[in-house]
Design a protein around this nucleic acid. Structure first.
Lengths: 231, 231
DNA sequence: TAATCTTAGTGTAATATATACACTAACTAA
DNA sequence: TTAGTTAGTGTATATATTACACTAAGATTA
């Protein structure tokens, strides 16, 4: 309660504004989310949560989110996708006092991460979605909303261009779709559809990776996220 | 500049949190939005804007939005639909200082409005979307985002159950869809689709309203907004 | 060098869905 | 009784979706 008085939001009509970021990528076909250490006794000692921080008076929520992403993970990806997710204003989401969080969904290809951001450090690490539980604050909820949003975007748009490397095989792409949508897709129908929609373009080059037939490499058509219906 | 110093958000890490509400309904087949007077010289003297207000320290953004809807228009509709729209945090969206607004989309049937809320008063009035321009703050932008969201929801969900009276004819429903989606629908295909999806249920009663064949009355099936693809 | 293993890649038939389109039905009012 | 108005219906065609099983191409190893 002492720490709660610190912000005195009960007396002023002000709120502390924070951003929290659900930063996601796909590694080996599995959806991963970025966690950082949280150490806020007594409620969250030695805990973990989503990257985030306070919004400065001189910046918009979006600018704060971008700053914090670059802060906590030395990320400088051209291919990062970024959208506002939801604003969380439950009174007790932060036990220290009234903190309202504007949450963002950000996704980027694993291959775009610097070496030090791929490995676990004391600044942060990547976990699969089922592992991202018992997070500090309401970050379990934010994670759930983010996964839901990403799933919905994956179904109706080409957002996966931001989760794939520039060049990929259709099997790799299918695996990522299956991982995010939690469903099995028919290989032939999946390929037929993407090619008919001209969502992907064959590069005329092959990827060899193992004792089997090499796979054609593809890239996404166009340059931005477009509306298409995948399944 | 004097009024800007009043909030002193540059010095504290606090922001003023507001909610703005895009409250929409359909009258005679036309989509309408609720405006209220705004009188904030020097920037917005004798102006108009969306209903809104500050979030109290003791309430969530959603609670504030509901309170403000009931405040400004004596609305007590069972059928109101309500969702968070977007959080607007541009630095200069309010010339008085840093005010971050959590915007909400709310829709309800015209028939649910009390008489005094259907008529123009000094508390508020209804205008069609094209008329809702040159609003105070960034309310033109909020309106545009709200219309876009409603249009998207109309395409993929049964949100229109919250814009129609309990009982309606299929012609009336089609008119509302056409008005919101800004497209012409084929009468036969529209009816076929809604009936096949079992989205609407005939009541076995007719509505007489003019010198022509009376129309069958329908209601929406189920009780909540569901995902269906209309067009 | 032949056999085996693994993943890549392909086509078709059946079903379901979407589209385009024009007349009759039921009522009122003149 | 006629004219005017909106309600209501069916079918043929095109398009999209689904289900399904084998061959191709390379690496490895016996």
């Amino acid at each position: 309660m002492k720490s709660q008085r610190k912000f005195a939001t009960e007396h002023l009509r002000f709120a502390i504004l924070a951003v929290d970021i659900a930063l996601m990528t796909v590694r080996d076909g599995a959806l991963m989310i970025r966690l950082t250490p949280v150490n806020r006794p007594p409620h969250f000692p030695n805990s973990k949560g989503l990257p985030g921080g306070l919004i400065e008076p001189s910046e918009t929520a979006e600018e704060a989110a971008l700053r914090l992403i670059r802060d906590r993970a030395t990320i400088c990806s051209k291919h990062i996708y970024f959208e506002q997710l939801y604003t969380f204003s439950e009174l007790n989401r932060d036990p220290r006092g009234r903190v309202v969080a504007v949450a963002y969904l950000a996704v980027l290809p694993w291959e775009d991460l610097a070496k030090e951001d791929q490995e676990d450090t004391n600044k942060g690490w990547w976990v699969t979605i089922p592992e991202a539980t018992k997070l500090a604050y309401d970050h379990d909820l934010i994670t759930a909303v983010a996964v839901q949003r990403l799933r919905s975007r994956a179904r109706y748009t080409t957002i996966l261009r931001h989760l794939m490397p520039t060049e990929f095989t259709l099997s790799e792409l299918e695996t990522v779709y299956e991982s995010i949508l939690k469903t099995d897709l028919d290989k032939r129908n999946f390929r037929k559809k993407l090619l008919k929609l001209k969502a992907v373009i064959p590069l005329g080059r092959k990827k060899k990776h193992g004792a089997h037939r090499p796979a054609e490499l593809y890239r996404f058509a166009g340059t931005k996220v477009e509306e298409i219906e995948i399944i």
